[in-house]
Structures are given as structure tokens and as C-alpha cells.
Computed example of a mutant assay.
Amino acid sequence: MTNKVAIDQDFCQAHGRCYALFPDLFEPDDEGRAQVKNDGVVPASSSVDEILAVCPEAAITTV
């Protein structure tokens, strides 16, 4: 199973759930859209499934 995620900027609507719940993995850009930190490597304390489930637009994908 993958341990990296990415943000599809075409789908991100800047809800902010990902960086509010996973600040070690995501941060907002200048427009409030999410961008990954640390090359999108999922921390050991989180699961990929719980991270994917956070985004209502399904903009978070595995790589």
C-alpha cells in the first residue's frame, strides 16, 4: 500500500479540512488551497484511508 498522497489542484475547493486535521502533511497556499508538505509522505501515526476520507471533493489522491 502507498504511503504518499498528493493534491489534485483541479478538484481542491479550499475547504481546509486536510490541513486543519493533518497539519504535518498539508498546508494552505496563498489562495487557501491545500498543498502537501514533506513530499506527501504519510506519517506513521495516520492511515492513508483516513486522510483520503477528509476531503469532500476527493482531491487527495495516493501516489
Rank of each mutant, 00 (worst) to 15 (best):
A59E: 01
D8Q: 06
D8M: 01
C55Q: 01
I7G: 03
A59F: 03
D29P: 08
F11N: 06
P23L: 11
L25P: 01
C12Q: 01
D10F: 07
R33A: 12
S45Y: 08
D10Y: 11
K4T: 07
R17W: 10
Q13D: 15
R17E: 14
V63K: 13
D39R: 09
G32I: 14
V36C: 02
A59I: 08
Y19C: 00
V42Y: 00
A58F: 15
V5C: 06
D29C: 12
V54F: 05
V36I: 08
E50K: 14
D39G: 10
D10I: 11
P56E: 03
V63D: 12
V41L: 07
E57R: 11
S45A: 09
V5M: 03
P56N: 07
L21N: 15
I60D: 02
D30G: 11
C12P: 00
G32Y: 09
E31D: 10
L52R: 06
S46G: 07
K4I: 04
F11T: 06
A44T: 14
A44G: 14
N3Y: 04
V48A: 08
K4V: 06
A58M: 10
T2G: 08
P43S: 08
Q13T: 15
T62P: 00
E57M: 15
T2F: 08
D39A: 11
H15S: 12
V48I: 11
Q35I: 12
Q9H: 10
A53P: 06
Q35S: 08
E57L: 06
N38A: 13
D49N: 13
G32C: 12
F26G: 00
N38G: 05
K37R: 04
E50N: 10
A53C: 08
D49E: 13
G40S: 05
D10W: 06
A44I: 09
A6P: 02
T2S: 14
E31W: 07
A6T: 14
L25W: 00
P56L: 04
T61L: 12
L52V: 04
P43M: 10
T61P: 05
M1L: 10
S46V: 13
E27F: 02
D8Y: 03
P28R: 02
Q35G: 05
H15I: 09
T62W: 00
V63L: 15
D30Y: 07
M1E: 09
Q9M: 11
A20M: 08
L52W: 03
G16F: 02
F11I: 09
P56W: 03
A20H: 14
L21T: 14
G32T: 10
V63Y: 09
P23D: 09
A20Y: 10
D49Q: 13
T2K: 11
S47A: 08
I51M: 04
I51A: 02
C12T: 03
I51D: 00
F26K: 02
P56F: 07
V63C: 14
M1C: 10
L52C: 04
P23I: 04
D29H: 13
H15E: 09
K37E: 05
V54E: 13
C55V: 04
Q13E: 15
V54D: 06
A59G: 02
L21S: 15
